[in-house]
Each structure stands twice: as structure tokens, then as C-alpha cells.
Write a protein that binds this DNA or RNA. Structure first.
Length: 885
RNA sequence: GGGCGAUUAGCUCAGCUGGGAGAGCGCUACCCUUACAAGGUAGAUGUCGGCGGUUCGAUCCCGUCAUCGCCCACCA
């Protein structure tokens, strides 16, 4: 560090310099520490081709703060980074590029060619997000970094798949799935977003065969009648139950279908008659299973009607709907149309309307795994912070549904199921290219064309990244030390997607939960509380924030907003505020630096009471820091640090130290310099997890030659020996006296530089001693040339203005003319305030029930409060009387 | 339809097992005081969403209503 420090802190070079030093010096690598225990956080792998957004920035900040904290505490820490292949979104980007550049779709080129293009894309953009994480200061060990499509990850996926397959937990089935016509793939329930859409109820007449009876059916999707294979009524519905067993005629296609009785039909709802389309409705599919109904798929993969659509073939559902309605009107089978708001599923990625469709897909039976994952949370093997989120988790895991894991995509883990072409045997195989059919040894086999849901590999991530299932790799990457990992940090939106799946997979394959704690952090929103989104254009680019305010300020802002809350409304002005705070620290150091050469290594034994006070405040702060970080209450950590550094240290201790340091008392100067240095060393250490860069920079100047970088230094702990509560109490009174004196000065417009005389009256002996010992401090901070400290029995000065605290009367004698009216007015205002408060306490004390029921310490406290206030009131009253006479 | 959460100073939010409300930002006034104008000193502001209940005492517990979020759900 240069000798001359600039008046403002410039983070740019400092941040680059230290990140490089840490990374090159292998400071992020796990090292055995004094705790002899591992602490590991697996970073939620961001999309490989993504860019860092504000949510990631919060992820990094909280995880890195925890890691840095634990590293300093002496744990063997590993912050393990990685990247996700993000099947759908990456493939979509590559498809877009192919179309824009070469007017090609994925169907125009081979699977191999497409994958080659995707890998190229990955190589080109894959590094971006990691570099951005580095800018944020993430202290990950990049040597551990993994990509979900790395060969090692593939091995884990195949191992898990084959095991589940052989246990019969993975099966293939014709099932109704959410079909995304845009992606032309099945997607999982969780990837479907239900949005309210204004549609209509269309009432249609179905003829009952061999009769004149018309059944009125209501539907929101009339076009699906082309796939109807039944009409259902409730067997208890007296209006219709006599028709059960008869046939109905589906309009347009004139198909004769059975009328079935099914409890699912709600007598009250709609018309009480339900058209049943097992091929395109989840409920109808279930009804179909119960009554053995035929399933007719009327849709192509792109969502248009197929040959079952008859004259509407080739139309989209939306277009077909209008035409079908028109046709029904023509056939005089249309009754009416009512406007209707209902929830319609949309693809999370594609945004298009999801069509329920029956197709052959792979599923995982998660019944038992889900049960185990619920049990783990109920028995506290894994705990949510804040605890309330376990309800969300339970609501998913207590009602597990079949997990559809096959996707009709190209970019992802290929499903390792093979079918023999000669004997038709189907098997799952861990080998990329199996040597042959296990049954007939033929080498002629085909592999299932689908890939796995991204969350299948994500669910294995904590194990995969630590080397599972390869013994050697597990040894090398420290599986036994780091698994189960310490904490998972993530947003609530992926509790089901990710947390639940990791829990299931972890317990299934490692026999242990994948992490002991899950900290669910807030969602970052804009300052008006809106979600950040591209369409609103209200996104905050973390890199831009780092450029403008510095990584430390940005991190501190995010941490200060993070506790057990659900949202952080991020206002760039707040970042500016914390940038100023960082700068304040820089300048506090500029003040201290010239005196450092005086400082000694060990704290002096003859501390004065100002020094005892600041050390005690520091000690309390260390206590709060240790506890709050452990509890993920980063908001508490940041506010405790902020007020200690800003108020206690800068505003009071440094200001008080100016006297001492400019005095001729060499012993006092040395002692003070030593305490200042001691405090500052602890300040940068305490702050390091949140603001790693500036603290490391300042530490390089503060540390002794034989000491290591701050990133590896000890985190300050609370120490009973450093607790000076009496000094803290007296100092608080001292501060109150000085502040009130300043107030008095301003109330009569005394210029800041003008020195005054001051008289204090108190009956607290301990306080009087304390004030006398710190009389130079009062002189310096209240700009007083002389200060008299008296007992209250002494006479008050004539011609003066006065302010009363609960413990001390402050008198400012004045030479000039005093506006008595104004002073009386001010005192009366004080009086009213104190009296009001006093009455509250007095009322309590005169309440017998209070005395009888309240805790004794509360009663004592109230008594003391009342006495103090009484004293203050008397002081003010005396003065008013004096002024008036 | 079910569930969860929120409602506290102009704004964003703390407030642990009930003892009478805090922070940051913003705002006002005065100050370039030799660490810092990205600064200093001082100051103002709250029927703690409404109504009931429990209690000696409620921002905190219970009930209820209102408003706003979010999540889940197959509602034809």
C-alpha cells in the first residue's frame, strides 16, 4: 500500500489485485484448520450460458460470507462451484442461433451435428458467468468446478438411473403429460405455470343414442370433443343416472361413446354432464383408466390437430376451437357460450399453452424416496432457515406425484436404456456403449432417443461434485469430509425442483441427507418490490453495480437486506449509501495510519476507561457477529457492524483519541495507538466475510510480517474478559451529556468554533468520577474551554441555559442576552414529554395488580425509570421557576 | 378452492420467549472543525391496518374483518 492514501477509496484495482492474489495463492483450497472439521457449500450451478443476475449476486454474497466466516473460524472449507447444462434454455439458444445464421432447424441436422454446435456454444459463453462470480469475490475453489455434462457427472447420472431402473423404480408408461408444443417435449408438472385466462364455457348438446334426449355438456375446450370417448355423469345424480350404460353421440365425428357414472363429476358444477377426453385432460385420463376407455390423441407434436381432427386437421387448437363452435352452430347442437375465467397451464420456458397429451415417457416412482425426505426434515436431520419454509417442502413431498424424467430434447444426459434389435430385450446400462445385449450378446441395439430432465442430474449434484460414485474420485475430492455438506443456500422457488430432489437422491444413494441446513434467502426485487424481468427492464446488473460502487459495497447491501425476509427491494441508492460506509472505513484508516508506528503488539494492562469502553463495544459486536452469521441473520450482522464502526468507533472513539494523540503524554499516546490498531484489526476481520476486498487491502498494512492474509486469519470471538459493562454504561451517559451540550449550543446559535464554559450537576458519584477522568474529552467534543462538575446541592449559575437528562443537569452560562421566553418554552416542551412518560410508569406503580403479578425485575426497572424521570422533571421545574422569577 | 406470508416514521424494513417502538435512506437547520462534503453536528415525524378478546400490561398471543403479495390445486 502506498504511503499517501487517497481521500476516497477506489475499489477497482484493489479488487482485481486481491482476487488474483487469493486465487494464485490457493487460498480458496480446503485446508485443515484448528477446528479439524469440514464445512462445505455446493454452489447452485447456474446455467452454463447464462449471465449473472441480481439473484445470483445474492447467492454468492451469502454463500461466500458463510464460507469466509467459517474459513476464518478454522474449518476446512470448500466452496464448490459448477455449471448446469440447462437443457431447455441452452438448446433454445442454439436453435435460435442455427435459425438466424443458417436458417436451419434441429430437424435439418443430425443429433451429432446439433450437439457439436451446442458444445461450441458452451465453450464460447460458458466461462462468462464464472468470471462474473469472481468479480463478486466468490472464494470458490475453481479446481473443483464441474459441469453437469462432464464425463464424471454422466457417470453419476447413469449409475443412479441404472440402480433405480433395476429396482423397478424407473418405468416407461403411456401417460398423460404436459406437452409443450413449442419445445415439442414433455415437461414436468413443476415447469407448468398456471395463469388466469379469460375464456368461455361452451355449452354443447350431445344426443343420447336411440332417443330424443339431449345431454347438455359444458366445456372450455370444445375442439377436444373430437377425442371424446365417453360422457360422464355422477351416479348419484338423479337427473342423469338412468342414462348410465347408454350411449351418447359425439357431435361432428358422430362417434358413439358410453355414458359412464363417475364420482368425480360434480353435480353442482356446470351442467352435471362431463365430456371425457382421456387423451387430453388429466382428470379425464383418470376417468378413462377407471372405465377402460379408449384414448384418442387428436394432436400432433406441434400442437396442431392430426387426422382425428377430421376437417380441422392441421389447425392449431385455438383456430380449431372457433371452427368447431361454428360447425356446432350449423348442426344446431350449440347451446350457449358464457365468459369464464380459468387457469391455463403455460410452459415456464416457452410461454406457450401446454397441451395435456398422452405419450410414452419415463417416470420415477418417488413414493418411498419422498417419504424418507419428509422424515429427514421432521427428525431435524435437515433444517430449514427460516423454519417456515418446511411447510412448502412438506406440501410437495407429502403428496408425491410421478416424476416424468424424459425430455424430447437433444442437449442433456441421454437416457441409458437400450433395446436389443434381435431379441427385443430392454435394459439399462452404465456403459456409454454397452458391449452387447445382456441376453443374447448381440451388438445390434438402439438407445432411447430422449434425454433426462435437468433436475435428475441436479438432484445428484452434492454427491456428483464430491466424486460419487467413483471411490478414487470420492477420496480425492473429500467425500467423507464434506458430505453431507453444511448448508444449501437458495431461493424458495426451487424448494421443490431442487431441494426436494437432492434430498431424495441423497438419502437414496448416499444414505444421508445431502446437507444439514437449507437457508432460503429472499428474492431480489426492484425498489418498488416488483420482480426483476426483461420485459419490465428493471433488472439490476451486478457487474454494473460493482463497477459503480465496488463489490464490497454491493455485497454489504445485499447482506444487510438478508435475514429471514422474503424479498429484498434493491434500490441502487442504498448501494451508494454503503459505498459511503466503505469509504468511511477507508478514511478512518487514513486517520489511524500515521500513528501505527507507535502501536505495540499486546494490549496494555493500564487501559483508561475510554479504551475499556471501545474494547467492550467491540467485544459485544464480535458476539453479535458470531451468533448472527451462524443463524443466517446477515441483516443483524451488518447493522451491528455498521453502528459499531460508524458510531462507536468513528464518531466517538476516534474523535476522543484526537486529544490523546496530540498530547505530550507519550505513554498515553502509545497506549491509545495500540488500542486503535487492535480495534481496527478486529474491525477488518469482522467485516471480511461481507467486504472481503477493502478489508484485505487494509489488513496488508495492519498485519505483522509473519502473519498471513486476512482471508486465512482468525475471526474475532467474544471474550468475557473484555466485557466492561460499567464503562459502557458511563460512556453512554457521557455521550448523552456531550450531545445535549451540542444541542444547547446550537439552540442559541453559538458558532461551532466558539468555546464555551460548561457546568454539570449530578448526584451519581461513579458518573462524576468518570466525567472528571474524561474532562478533556468533554472539552474537545463539546468545544468547552472549562468544565465544572458539581453535586446537585451546589448553586446553579445565573444567566445560563439548561438541559436536564435523567442523571445530569447541563448548564451553559452565557454572557449575552438570553431570550427567556424561548428558553422557558423549550424547557416546558421537555417537561411535558418527561411528565407524560413519567405518568405511564407512575400509573403502573400505583396499580396493585401490576405490583402483585409482574416479574420483580420488571417492577424494579419501572421504579428506577420513574425515579430517574422524577429527578429530571424536578430539575426542569426548578429551572423554569428560576427563569420566571 | 386450499395454504402461506405481509400490513410498524415519507421510502425500505428490524422488533427474539408480551413490560410500552428502532435502523438505514430521505427530509430540515447550521457548519469546508487538520480521517472522511461519498463529510460533521443537531432536529422533526408513528392512534405499530380496523374491530373484538385473553392479561396487571399487547406492535408481539387468540378471534374476526379489510387490503396486498406469493405458492399450490384437475375444477369441466
Amino acid at each position: 500500500m502506498s504511503q499517501e492514501l487517497a481521500t476516497t477509496y477506489d475499489p477497482k484495482d484493489v479488487e482485481k489485485k486481491w482476487y488474483k492474489t487469493w486465487e494464485e495463492g490457493k487460498y480458496f483450497a480446503p485446508k485443515k484448520g484448528k477446528q479439524n472439521e469440514g464445512y462445505c457449500i455446493i454452489m447452485p450451478p447456474p446455467n452454463v450460458t447464462g449471465i449473472l443476475h441480481a439473484g445470483h449476486a445474492l447467492d454468492i454474497t451469502t454463500q461466500d460470507a458463510l464460507i469466509r466466516f467459517k474459513r476464518m473460524k478454522g474449518y476446512e472449507t470448500l466452496f464448490l462451484p459448477g455449471m448446469d447444462h440447462a437443457g431447455i434454455s441452452t438448446q433454445a439458444k442454439v436453435e435460435k442461433k442455427l435459425w438466424e445464421e443458417r436458417k436451419l432447424t434441429k430437424h435439418d441436422i443430425s443429433r451429432e451435428e446439433f450437439l457439436e454446435e451446442t458444445w461450441k456454444w458452451k465453450e464460447e459463453y460458458g466461462g462468462n458467468i464464472a468470471n462474473q462470480q469472481k468479480v463478486m469475490g466468490a472464494s470458490c475453489d475453481w479446481d473443483y468446478s464441474m459441469f453437469t455434462l462432464d464425463p464424471e457427472a454422466n457417470e453419476a447420472v447413469r449409475k443412479a438411473f441404472v440402480d433405480l431402473y433395476n429396482e423397478g423404480l424407473i418405468y416407461q408408461s403411456d401417460y398423460i403429460v404436459n406437452w409443450d408444443p413449442e419445445l415439442q417435449s414433455a415437461i414436468s408438472d413443476a415447469e407448468v405455470i398456471h395463469e388466469e385466462v379469460t375464456g368461455a364455457f361452451y355449452h354443447i348438446h350431445y344426443k343420447v343414442a336411440d332417443s330424443d334426449i339431449l345431454l347438455e355438456v359444458a366445456t372450455t375446450r370444445p375442439e377436444t370433443l373430437l377425442g371424446d370417448t365417453a360422457v360422464a355423469v355422477n351416479p348419484n345424480d338423479e337427473r342423469f343416472n338412468h342414462l348410465i350404460g347408454k350411449k351418447a353421440i359425439v357431435p361432428i365425428c358422430n362417434r358413439e361413446v358410453p355414458i359412464v357414472g363417475d364420482e368425480h363429476v360434480d353435480i353442482e358444477k356446470g351442467t352435471g354432464c362431463l365430456k371425457v377426453t382421456p387423451g387430453h385432460d388429466f382428470n379425464d385420463f383418470e376417468i378413462g383408466k377407471r372405465h377402460n376407455l379408449e384414448i384418442i390423441n387428436i394432436l400432433n407434436k406441434d400442437g396442431t390437430l392430426n387426422e382425428h381432427g377430421l376437417e380441422f386437421e392441421g389447425l392449431t387448437c385455438k383456430k380449431a376451437r372457433n371452427k368447431v363452435v361454428a360447425k356446432l352452430k350449423e348442426l344446431e347442437l350449440f347451446v350457449k357460450e358464457e365468459k369464464h375465467k380459468h387457469q391455463v397451464g403455460h410452459g415456464e420456458r416457452s410461454g406457450v399453452v401446454i397441451e395435456p397429451m398422452v405419450s410414452k415417457q419415463w417416470f420415477v416412482n418417488t413414493d418411498d424416496m419422498a417419504k424418507a425426505s419428509v422424515d429427514a426434515v421432521e427428525t431435524d436431520k435437515m433444517r430449514f432457515y427460516p423454519k417456515g419454509w418446511e411447510n412448502t417442502y412438506f406440501s410437495y413431498q407429502r403428496n408425491p406425484r410421478n416424476w416424468c424424467i424424459s425430455r424430447q430434447l437433444l442437449w442433456g444426459h441421454r437416457i441409458p436404456v437400450f433395446t436389443c434389435k434381435s431379441c427385443d430385450h430392454q435394459w439399462a446400462d452404465e456403459g456409454v456403449e454397452p458391449s452387447g445385449c445382456p441376453k443374447c450378446s448381440t451388438k445390434d441395439y438402439s438407445q432411447d432417443p430422449d434425454v433426462l430432465d435437468t433436475w435428475f442430474s441436479s438432484g445428484l449434484w452434492p454427491m456428483t461434485t464430491l466424486g460419487w460414485p467413483n471411490k478414487e474420485r470420492m477420496e480425492q475430492r473429500g467425500f467423507t469430509t464434506f458430505y453431507p455438506t453444511s448448508v444449501l443456500v437458495t431461493g424458495f422457488d426451487i424448494i421443490f425442483f431442487w431441494v426436494a430432489r437432492m434430498m431424495m437422491m441423497g438419502e437414496k444413494f448416499a444414505g444421508k441427507v445431502p446437507f444439514h441446513k437449507t437457508y432460503i434467502h429472499a428474492i431480489v426485487r426492484d425498489k418498488q418490490g416488483r420482480k426483476m424481468s426483461k420485459s419490465l427492464g428493471n433488472g439490476i446488473d451486478p457487474i454494473e453495480m460493482v463497477d459503480t460502487y465496488g463489490a464490497d459495497a454491493f455485497r454489504f447491501t445485499l447482506a444487510a437486506g438478508s435475514g429471514y425476509n422474503r424479498g429484498i427491494n434493491l434500490d441502487t441508492e442504498r448501494i451508494g449509501g454503503y459505498r459511503n460506509f466503505i469509504n468511511k472505513i477507508w478514511n478512518a484508516y487514513r486517520f489511524i495510519q500515521p500513528h501505527l508506528s507507535l502501536a505495540e503488539d499486546d494490549l496494555p494492562t493500564d487501559l483508561d476507561n475510554q479504551e475499556k469502553w471501545i474494547l467492550s463495544e467491540l467485544n459485544s459486536t464480535a458476539k453479535i457477529m458470531n451468533e448472527s452469521i451462524e443463524d443466517f441473520r446477515f441483516d443483524d450482522s451488518c447493522s451491528a457492524l455498521y453502528s459499531f464502526i460508524y458510531d462507536s468507533f468513528c464518531s466517538w472513539f476516534i474523535e476522543l483519541s484526537k486529544n490523546t494523540l496530540s498530547s505530550d503524554d507519550q505513554g498515553a499516546k502509545t497506549r491509545r495507538a495500540t488500542v486503535l490498531k487492535y480495534c481496527f484489526r478486529d474491525i477488518v476481520a469482522l467485516l471480511h466475510p461481507f467486504a472481503p476486498f477493502i478489508t484485505e487491502e487494509l489488513w496488508s498494512d495492519l498485519k505483522n510480517e509473519n502473519e498471513d492474509l486476512l482471508i486465512s486469519y482468525d475471526y474475532p470471538e467474544y471474550s468475557e474478559a473484555m466485557n466492561y459493562s460499567e464503562e459502557q454504561e458511563n460512556m453512554n451517559k457521557f455521550i448523552e451529556i456531550v450531545s445535549n451540550t451540542r444541542f444547547l449550543r446550537q439552540s442559541v446559535n453559538i458558532k461551532p468554533k466558539e468555546e464555551v464554559s460548561l457546568q454539570l450537576f449530578s448526584d451519581e458519584d461513579k458518573l462524576i468520577t468518570f466525567l472528571n477522568e474524561n474532562i478533556d474529552g468533554i472539552k474537545g467534543l463539546a468545544k468547552a474551554k472549562d468544565v465544572l462538575i458539581n453535586k446537585k446541592s451546589e448553586a446553579r449559575p445565573e444567566k445560563s441555559i439548561m438541559k436536564a437528562t435523567t442523571h445530569t443537569e447541563i448548564f451553559l452560562p452565557l454572557d449575552g442576552v438570553i431570550d427567556l421566553e424561548e428558553q422557558i418554552k423549550r424547557l416546558e416542551k421537555d417537561l411535558t414529554k418527561s411528565q407524560k412518560e413519567y405518568e405511564k410508569y407512575d400509573k403502573k406503580l400505583s396499580n396493585e395488580k401490576f405490583i402483585a403479578n409482574a416479574k420483580p425485575e420488571v417492577v424494579a426497572e419501572v421504579k428506577e425509570k420513574a425515579n430517574e424521570l422524577k429527578e429530571q422533571i424536578d430539575s426542569i421545574n426548578d429551572r423554569i421557576k428560576n427563569f420566571k422569577s
